[in-house]
């Protein structure tokens, strides 16, 4: 007995359909990728030759596809907050960073990251006080929430956490300065043009393997790029 043979037209149709499905899948994938790519916030050069970069770290960003993930917001020139870790900076410029840290902390997996490095003067100001080594065991035991680390620029800035039981603890972002926070300020120099990756060294990906999955591996949360142009 011979199997059912499709007519030429039917076969061509099936082929076309398969092809269309494949293209559709591709477009879906690319669009999905583009949709989830966080925006780049550009920090333009000021007249004084230095720029201000204002960021906040929240225990839960509260927006986007993963509202419960820990992550960053970056302020643009108009003062609006964007949930992203992609930052464009001018080259050979001093960048004055202000970081509002709203997350709770713990100990570092590797205490070597308690040292401030790569900043002007080798210090970061935590709520106004200059620190070169941040002891996770001080600051009433709230530990280190995150570290801002740019390997290629040698930058490492540990951020004290706030108490998770603070009265006005920010449970979901974007947070504002009326809520419990630490203000960390420091300055670094951008040097030449290039794209520099940055990450956090506190394994803060809650519920992921070794704490290093999820937000730790996702742009817009705990992984990012400084695009120096």
């Amino acid at each position: 007995m011979k199997g059912v043979r499709l007519s030429k037209g039917a076969r061509a149709g099936a082929l076309l359909f398969g092809f269309a499905a494949l293209i559709g899948l591709l477009i879906f994938g690319v669009a999905g990728y583009l949709r989830t790519s966080p925006p780049t916030v550009s920090v333009g050069a000021s007249s004084s030759g230095s720029v201000n970069l204002v960021m906040q770290t929240d225990g839960a960003v509260g927006v986007g596809p993963h509202p419960s993930w820990v992550g960053y917001f970056v302020q643009d020139a108009s003062g609006a907050w964007h949930q992203t870790t992609l930052i464009q900076l001018p080259q050979n410029t001093d960048v004055h960073v202000t970081l509002y840290e709203y997350d709770s902390g713990g100990n570092l997996r590797n205490s070597v990251w308690s040292q401030v490095a790569g900043t002007t003067g080798g210090v970061a100001y935590i709520n106004g006080a200059a620190e070169s080594v941040v002891n996770p065991n001080t600051n009433t035991g709230n530990g280190i929430a995150h570290t801002f680390n740019v390997p290629a620029l040698g930058i490492n800035v540990p951020m004290y956490g706030v108490s998770g039981s603070a009265k006005n603890f920010c449970n979901t972002g974007p947070c504002n300065t009326s809520q419990a926070h630490n203000t960390i300020t420091f300055t670094f120099h951008t040097g030449g043009a290039g794209t520099y990756r940055w990450q956090c060294f506190v394994p803060c990906g809650l519920g992921y393997l070794e704490g290093n999955g999820g937000p730790m591996q996702s742009l817009g949360y705990m992984a990012g790029f400084l695009k120096v142009v």
């Binding site: 713990g106 709230n142 070794e210």
Partner: peptide, 17 residues
């Protein structure tokens, strides 16, 4: 594992807070 991820060679529970 998990947030705070643990750290090394110490008896303090990093997740205590």
């Amino acid at each position: 594992s998990g947030a705070g991820g643990g750290y090394y060679n110490t008896s303090v529970d990093p997740n205590a807070n």
